[in-house]
Simulated scan of single mutants.
Amino acid sequence: MPRKGNRKRLKYRADDVSSHRVTVADFANSDPAVVKSGRIKKAVANAVQKEVKALCGLEASRVPSEDGLSVLSENGHFGSSDELEDIENDNGSSCRKKKSKKHKESFMADRTGGDYPIDIWLVLASYIRPEDVMTFALICKKAWTVTCTAVFWMRLYKRNYQASAYLPDRLLPEWMYRLRSLRACVIRSLFHMYEPFCSRVAKNPPLPESTPNTLLNSKCLLFWCRKVEPGGRAEPLWEFNFKLKKPLLKQKNPCSNGLQPPIEYKEVHFNPDQDCCLLQVTTLNFIFIPVVMGMTLTFFTINVSTDMRHHRVRLLFQDCPVLSGKKPRGELGVQIVLDPVHSVHLLDWWHPKYPFSATA
């Protein structure tokens, strides 16, 4: 086997290269020491370019040499962009120049849009569907400002109002002229009148699968129980309601910049039930439950009851929340076991069955 230093290099002559003399054997038996990274020599590239010019005529002869090298690179003769830059440096010219930062800044400056007055955004908001309000608010700051006004929510309420729909007293037209909690009341009314929102409530399960995880470290604001008279049953049911305040999730949102509604529309966005939900557990019998208001829900499970026909709900309330990754200790809190359970429902603050104060 010949040594590496004595390896014979393959020589090319520009005059010997033509379309009739180049064969597959010339490339198959080429010396790797000469053709590094699968790249042909500059002399061979120029010879092939000269042959192409002779075949194509006068128009091809006017093509500069840099274009011929770029064509060869596009056909796969050059392995990478770094190798192409090396050849350009050898010829004393470059066919590709990277855009500088100043060029990019000037390019972006030319693409800046116009600043439209807020009246135009207010007119466009009159044609926004309720499910597209968030998308409209993310267009720009002025579009978001329009969604904070009382005019926007009143127009949205009037466009979707239906006299035949049942509404609580607070959601009737004669009550909607109050600015306090106007946004929350309009959202609640849409789940009574707007068909896409009504069907969404009907299709959602009474208790989502992610409920045990989303309710962890929720604070119990209020608790009450009441007797329910079901149809077709001799004995009444008992309904236990836990009003929970969901914990604030610390999420890094790149689109969020801490925008707050204008001061003049602070009453419009007031919502005492924001991030609240109602855990509703209906049992077959009355069960004594200790006072858990002000405590934090740290454990919540739903299992099969002992009679194998109903459910069994277990709740654990403690004085302080539990850190993620740690298991709560039952002896440090108040444990509530509801068995047998007839049904379990989770109602968000905008749900039609969620109880809210008429003075809100």
Rank of each mutant, 00 (worst) to 15 (best):
E209Y: 10
L237T: 01
L259R: 15
V123I: 14
C148F: 03
D31N: 06
R13P: 07
W121V: 00
V123K: 11
F356L: 08
A165R: 10
P328V: 03
S93G: 09
L284D: 08
S73M: 05
F27K: 02
D86G: 00
S80P: 02
L124Y: 10
D26N: 12
F152Q: 03
V268A: 01
V304G: 15
W121R: 01
H192P: 02
E66M: 15
M193A: 10
K353C: 04
Q162L: 08
K158T: 15
F78G: 01
T282G: 07
I302C: 11
Y116N: 06
D82W: 15
L124C: 11
L284A: 12
N29M: 10
D67S: 11
I187D: 03
P117L: 10
R62M: 06
G57S: 02
L338V: 00
R200V: 06
L249W: 11
R309A: 15
F242R: 05
G113R: 04
R13C: 11
D15S: 09
T211Y: 10
A28E: 00
G68N: 12
M1Q: 09
K227R: 13
D26G: 12
N6D: 13
L323S: 11
L122P: 10
K252G: 05
H77C: 09
L284Y: 04
F136V: 01
E267G: 05
P64E: 12
L10E: 04
L72K: 02
S61K: 13
T298A: 13
F242C: 08
K243R: 09
P355S: 14
K97E: 05
N253F: 09
L171N: 01
D348H: 06
R13T: 11
E74R: 02
K41M: 09
L182P: 01
N91L: 09
L244N: 00
E74L: 02
Y354L: 05
T135H: 15
F27Q: 00
P355A: 12
P196V: 07
E267C: 08
D16F: 11
R39W: 13
V334T: 06
W153Y: 09
P352Q: 09
R39V: 08
V292Y: 12
F78E: 05
L55V: 10
I87K: 05
S80G: 00
C140W: 04
F152V: 01
D319T: 14
P168I: 02
K36I: 14
G114Q: 06
N160S: 07
E59H: 13
R183C: 04
C95I: 08
Y116F: 08
C185F: 11
V334Q: 04
L171K: 00
E85N: 02
A125P: 05
L237P: 00
L10H: 07
S189H: 00
L237F: 01
R188G: 03
N204C: 06
L55T: 08
Q49N: 11
